[in-house]
């Protein structure tokens, strides 16, 4: 956010200085016109860069502040200890209560989040309504097995170093699409620095282009729409 704020400041400085220049040449009326132009320009830039991104996303807290680092240190098989593949090869995603109960039938520590988890969910046998940052819409077919098992990709390539996080970040939901903000990416313009910053279709195809995998579709012999959109 600070980066964006900086930008808008720079823009408004330019605006002010050029407004002075204009008014000098064209006199009163012209100056007003230029001023109005810049007022409109600045206002809409502020709306577009600052207010719009804030208004676009609603913010939700995860029901439990889960500590990935802590758990990662305790389990034996990395991410797959909890985010495992089922026997049929399908990917289980966010763990269900049944898995958590294996260790957390009773609270293991005095951590208030853990106690809250045991009291509110384990004892009442209610599934935790986790908010999934990387949830793709129904029209996208994605196989974790193909990427993780066959292509030996790291989880972090798409999901980032979540395994090293100590707290759950805020879940931001796009008010229009209902998608998580992590699909479009934190950067409102869509600029990414890391492979895991965005999860839009272009990001999938970027990697597929680079790796030259599954580019051809049986149906079209062009880029493979039907690989993901079945």
């Amino acid at each position: 956010m600070s980066e964006l704020d900086g930008k808008s400041q720079t823009v408004s400085e330019i605006v002010v200085s050029s407004a002075h220049g204009q008014s000098g040449k064209e006199g009163g009326s012209g100056g007003v016109i230029v001023l109005f132009f810049f007022v409109g320009l600045v206002a809409s830039l502020i709306v577009g860069w600052v207010l719009f991104p804030k208004a676009l996303y609603s913010q939700k807290k995860q029901p439990i502040d889960f500590n990935h680092t802590l758990h990662n240190g305790l389990v034996g098989n990395g991410c797959e200890s909890c985010h495992f593949f089922r026997e049929d090869g399908s990917y289980s995603g966010v763990p269900k209560l049944a898995q958590c109960i294996e260790c957390h039938e009773e609270a293991q520590s005095s951590d208030p989040e853990e106690i809250k988890f045991v009291e509110q969910f384990v004892k009442k046998e209610i599934e935790v309504p986790w908010l999934v940052y990387a949830r793709q819409p129904d029209c996208v077919f994605f196989s974790h097995a193909a990427h993780v098992k066959s292509a030996n990709m790291d989880c972090a390539t798409c999901h980032g170093p979540i395994g090293e996080s100590e707290h759950m970040k805020l879940y931001q939901q796009n008010r229009i699409t209902g998608y998580s903000r992590n699909i479009w990416g934190e950067n409102i313009v869509g600029i990414k620095k890391n492979t895991w910053d965005r999860m839009k279709m272009d990001d999938c195809s970027e990697c597929h282009q680079k790796q030259k995998v599954l580019l051809g579709s049986v149906q079209t012999q062009k880029e493979g729409c039907f690989v993901c959109h079945k």
């Binding site: 409109g40 577009g48 860069w49 991104p53």
Partner: peptide, 8 residues
Amino acid sequence: AGTALSPL
């Protein structure tokens, strides 16, 4: 102009 220059 401002809107066009913003991501909105």
